[in-house]
Amino acid sequence: MNKSGLIETLSKKEGLTEKKAIDIVNLIFKGFTDELKKGGRIEIRGLGSFVVRDYQAYTGRNPKTGKNIKVAPKKLPFFKVGKELKERVDGKK
């Protein structure tokens, strides 16, 4: 399922126009992105949580050429699945 599939399913399920469904889905993911940009944390009960992790600079290696390269410090988003969804996905519950 991609974003348009999500939009279509939402519009059918909730009886919304496609335009409204697009606005809602975009608003949610724009909100997520903005929050993570601020370095904030997102917690959606039943789904999971998103945090931004800081990674320090390190010297890596280009596996093709074997050359050392400096990797700059970076921030990466990290998702932790919620307990309920974790169990559902695994099909144990």
């Binding site: 399922m1 999500l6 939402l10 993911f29 039943g46 559902r88 996905v89």
Partner: peptide, 18 residues
């Protein structure tokens, strides 16, 4: 509803691409 749709899809083993 948006999160329910996502959870249902993932429970079926489908991936979600946003």
């Amino acid at each position: 509803s948006v999160f329910d749709i996502m959870k249902d899809s993932l429970t079926r083993g489908e991936k979600i691409k946003v």
